[in-house]
Design a protein around this nucleic acid. Structure first.
Lengths: 161, 161
DNA sequence: TTTATTATGGATATAACAGATCCGTATTAA
DNA sequence: TTAATACGGATCTGTTATATCCATAATAAA
């Protein structure tokens, strides 16, 4: 289980846009050169980001891309969900099958009545917790927060000299 | 980005083993019927779990599988890492390329000196944080903790009647 | 010792997906 | 009008998840 390269490209492209937001409209040529990725492939990714309202695009001469909203309002979760999709991290393939009657027999309940196992798979419940946890973290990190971190590190380096 | 079905099967199989640990050696036949998966496919998964010391296997008549250690010592993380592998959640495909000199030019540092961007990709750093977060959570949940939860829920149900 | 049972591992098949490229079209600025 | 640029469809390739089949080894019971 891994994030795709596309997510990598998307995040780095957005960082570049966030960094050079003074002069608008960074072209696919510049972006792809910066990331060492082909223009055609990166443009697919940028299209997704545009369709989801993360960036704006302008065709034509001097066209290109810019962030559609402030960098502090673009979270890692936003980007990841656009690229990776929004399916949940884990889906029990088996929710209403015998497996989940695990407690209904074999002595789990000593009496003769069944345990109704209501409200779904407990494995899925744990995994959903993991997912919510992950999402909380990813919402706390934005394009801007990475840029800030980079500046901080850079200035620190400069000051040392 | 999603966990595979194999992880699903593995976790449910282990729950079944943990639940019926009184009589040892649950066979692949019983397991696969329980999970609605073919014997051949599930046996591959069980082999992985065995190679990693999660379960023990006995061939021959009345053979089968049992947990190799107490259910409270088998964490979700253990199982997931066996099945999904141990690659990190995110790898920057680009660590020593131009992208990471993002701050070294275009006015980020007004002076003429470069920012050395040392110690790797900041995107990766954020993602590594997410991964550690996730791992912490997955280590806190075990086969036993799910069984406990199931019993709790079941007893609660019984008491209501 | 023989036999039936059960796990193991190799080989293979298939479908889906990631990664990537090419090209024709539409849009815009100069 | 033209050149530059983004857009979207079609396609290709390699890898991986899912799954099955079969021959082999190990074990318990008869």
């Amino acid at each position: 289980m891994q994030f795709s390269k596309s997510t990598d490209y998307a995040l780095h492209a957005l960082l570049h846009l966030g960094h050079s937001d003074r002069r608008n409209n960074v072209g696919i040529k510049e972006l792809s050169a910066r990331l060492s990725v082909s223009e055609s492939y990166l443009s697919k990714i940028m299209s997704k980001l545009r369709q989801d309202g993360i960036v704006r695009a302008v065709p034509g001469v001097n066209g290109g891309y810019e962030l559609a909203r402030p960098a502090e309002q673009i979270t890692f979760l936003d980007v990841i969900q656009v690229i990776e999709g929004r399916q949940q991290l884990f889906e029990c393939s088996n929710s209403n099958s015998q497996q989940h009657q695990l407690l209904a027999e074999a002595g789990a309940v000593p009496s003769e009545q069944e345990c109704p196992k209501k409200s779904g798979c407990l494995v899925e419940k744990v995994m959903d917790g993991a997912e919510q946890n992950l999402h909380r973290y990813l919402r706390e990190h934005t394009i801007q927060s990475v840029l800030d971190e980079a500046f901080k590190r850079c200035n620190h380096e400069v000051n040392k000299k």
